[in-house]
Amino acid sequence: MTVEIDLLILGLGNVLCGDDGLGVMAVHQLEERYDTPHGVRIVDGGTLGLALLPLLHEARVVLMIDAIRCEDAPGAVVRLEGADVSPAVRERLSPHDIGVADLLDAAELLGCSPTKIMLLGLVPDRMDLGIGLSPGVEAGMPALIDSILGEAAALGHVLRLKPQRGVSDGARLWA
């Protein structure tokens, strides 16, 4: 394994489908407001599947940000780790059904799995066609950003606030 990225923060989901895009929106917000320290990469992975394999190959730890459905109320922060991640992402029917679970399988088949994989996200509310988050999920976004910062800090990566908020095309368009 070639480790060039110590921590990959990977936003996933479809921004055209409401709360499904919360992971992508979170990484755009993160990029707008925080400097990316050395060793960290922040990537908008959208609904890409195998195209993400090169990134996974280079990463030691992967923190995936996504919509996670469970019994908690919409907007609640959910965190999964290790063996719990793969079954949870199984249902994602992404590119050709080679979704995130299959991306992880492919990495394993090739012997290039990251040493640690975490999944962090919010419980979605509405996922029908449309751009923008539902109110409950919108309200949960600051807690999600804080959780991402906390996970990064626990791995020794401190993301510092930019003196001035940057402008991300993604954040402009998906807002």
Partner: peptide, 10 residues
């Protein structure tokens, strides 16, 4: 444009 939601329970 599949809706891509992770299910933590299933």
């Amino acid at each position: 444009c599949g809706v891509h939601v992770v299910d933590a329970n299933k």
